[in-house]
Design a binder for these strands. Structure first.
Lengths: 279, 279
DNA sequence: TGCGGTGTTCCATTATCTGGAACTTTGTTT
DNA sequence: AAACAAAGTTCCAGATAATGGAACACCGCA
């Protein structure tokens, strides 16, 4: 056995099912899930029923398939706005991206994976979920390694434990020991590289975003290709990266969450407020 | 009591807690939740613990607050790509928006609320989660009413039951009966208006998006202001709206989900695949 | 030092989940 | 058209995990 440590009783199992559905990357039939999941038919059936009734899964009656439900989109909207650095970091990313003209990524750790919460593409400005919400491996990306390097020791041990090493390129780090070495280098420097470890020809520099208390908030990186530059070239951008990370951290520290303006009308309607022009 | 029908055992309650946290629209402390939720302290505590351990809630140790967790963003990414019309509708929205030059909304029903899954703003092209994932009331928006009007009778009854009417403007519909009348008009016409029912000066036309089997998939609308046009002006756009809705529905019908290219490396890593350039 | 509010743990009771098996429905084959 | 297989659904006694009252620990503050 390797990754996904479930644990937390019934709720944990239900969420595990949800993850599995999402993991398929396409709508799935009940049997497919049944084959893939370690639950007996009746049990899985009940989970799926519950999740559908809760809007966490959507059932397509035409095709008889299940897919992650729209309620997740609503909830993610909140998560994005509240628990991610994206809204705070936005202006800083804009500026950095304008200045360096390369692809910029803002990432945070989700479980043991890198979750990209925002991105600037130089060419086409912004896209959508297609990038925000995407996950990647932690052990072979710049942001991933830099974030791991600044984790408290106990959390780090857990996270390393959950990495499942896979050779993407000749330079991919393949053992926990090699990774630990690399991380202590990164800790010493305060920044890290991706030396074509995930995709050939693609390199990047990354720095951590740390709160004033030294807690890891996220990671910030500039990505380029070996055709356009090299590691030394990227290294020259480190000061600029650091400034941006520091600015983001400063804003995050001072973030004072305003209370809701309206006292919520009648029913427990969930809305982020702010008013808008949707119709 | 009014809205949120929980029901589904432990899992349902846990998700209810999640919703409540998201509903605050800002990080919350444990006591705040305790005051707002109908669970005893120990029970709520365990729920929160479980949700945090699952990554569905994020705990900020500095401020001792809870917020929706990043795992939701990852899951929503899947939901967005699989269960929403957004990826299919994107090119059609682009075209429609270019042609009419007004704000265009693509919405779907989530529980009894309108969930905006995509939007075109005429001025600034695309923004982010800030719009996708946003929810609004169903009974006083164009898309909301049009979608309700094309629901099967039993679902409609449920949805009407869950509306909690609130007077936003002088023209807001305030009773289930008035709403039912309006819906049968809409059913007869095949399109509906928002007559400044949600926000003064803001009007819109909306049409449903229906599958070939007649099942409701979503809603599509064009929004404008009374300063720029009037209902008659919007009505002239109905044919164009209908064409777009039909095109989206056609694409949705023929949607054949490709299987994943790679057979997934080692551990049950969840990734939508497709490969990218994140680092 | 003591106090009020907040956060955490304990544990016997009890409600809820579990899963094998039987049943129904759907669609495919001869 | 009948027979069969596979997918989907329901049932229920037993096992497990959730419940919540109460006691305990941990602040920061006066």
């Amino acid at each position: 056995m390797a990754a996904s440590g479930t644990g937390d009783g019934t709720v944990g199992k239900a969420l595990d099912v949800l993850d599995r559905v999402a993991g398929f990357g396409r709508p799935v039939r009940f049997v497919e899930l049944l084959d893939a999941a370690p639950y007996p038919k009746a049990t899985l059936y009940r989970f799926v029923q519950t999740l559908v009734s809760q809007g966490m899964l959507a059932f397509d009656p035409d095709r008889q398939t299940y897919a992650p439900g729209l309620r997740l989109v609503r909830l993610a909207h909140s998560a994005w706005a509240q628990a991610s650095l994206a809204p705070i970091a936005r202006p800083h990313l804009d500026r950095l991206s304008r200045e360096v003209g390369e692809t910029v990524h803002l990432a945070q750790l989700d479980a043991a994976q890198v979750l990209y919460v925002d991105k600037r593409n130089a060419a086409q400005p912004i896209e959508m979920f297609s990038q925000a919400g995407k996950v990647g491996p932690a052990y072979c990306t710049g942001v991933g390694k830099v974030m791991m390097a600044h984790l408290p020791p106990d959390r780090l041990a857990e996270v390393i434990d959950q990495q499942s090493f896979h050779r993407f390129t000749p330079t991919t780090i393949l053992t926990a020991d090699r990774l630990r070495d690399e991380l202590s280098d990164i800790r010493a420097n305060g920044y890290g590289f991706d030396r074509e470890e995930h995709e050939p020809g693609i390199i990047c520099v990354a720095v951590p975003i740390l709160s004033s208390g030294g807690r890891l908030l996220g990671g910030l990186s500039i990505t380029s290709s070996t055709r356009r530059t090299n590691l030394a070239g990227l290294e020259r951008l480190v000061p600029r990266l650091r400034e941006t990370a520091a600015a983001i951290a400063a804003d995050a520290d001072g973030w004072n969450f305003p209370r809701m303006s309206e006292p919520q009308a009648a029913a427990p309607d969930h809305d982020t407020g702010k008013g808008g022009t949707e119709r």
